[in-house]
Amino acid sequence: MARLNFVLLLAVLVSALYLVRTQYESRRLYVELEKTSAQSRKIEVENERLQVEKRAQATPLRVEQLARDRLHMRTATPAITQYVSYKDAAPAPAGGAPHE
């Protein structure tokens, strides 16, 4: 009988240790999941902010302003436009080399 009690006590102890280990692992994984969820929410907020900023940067007015300021471009007007007609253009030589 003592041997059976000892085996049962040992089984209860092993079971209790396994239960404690399982609960600890479960809590650890839950904390990791919460941290990951918080990080995911933070990344989503940052992504939304960047999308809004991207849309603000791509407005036609901003693109035109950058073209004027940085690239020194100007609006095409008839006064600065040069038209080339087909009659004025010299025919290209047969070999593809330019005329000199």
Rank of each mutant, 00 (worst) to 15 (best):
L9I: 08
L66T: 03
R62A: 14
R27C: 03
M73Q: 07
K87E: 15
E34H: 07
A76C: 12
L9Y: 07
R3H: 06
E32P: 00
L8Y: 03
L61V: 03
L17T: 01
R68T: 04
E53K: 05
T81W: 00
A92V: 13
I43P: 00
D69N: 10
Q82E: 14
A67P: 01
L9E: 12
L10P: 00
L71N: 05
V12E: 05
E64R: 12
R49D: 05
P78H: 01
E48L: 11
V31I: 12
R70S: 09
P98Y: 05
E46M: 03
V20D: 06
T81A: 03
R41D: 15
Q57G: 04
L8I: 04
P98V: 08
L4R: 12
R70V: 02
T59F: 00
D69W: 09
Q82M: 06
F6D: 10
L61I: 03
I80F: 00
Y86V: 12
R62S: 09
D88C: 01
K35C: 02
R55K: 15
A16W: 02
Q82G: 14
T22P: 02
E48N: 09
R62T: 07
E34Q: 13
E100S: 11
E64H: 10
L61D: 15
I43H: 08
L71C: 04
S40Y: 14
A58M: 15
R62P: 01
E100Y: 08
P60Y: 00
K42P: 00
R3C: 10
G96Q: 01
E32A: 11
A76L: 15
R27P: 01
V84H: 15
A56V: 07
K35H: 11
R70I: 07
V7N: 09
R55M: 12
L50H: 07
E64K: 12
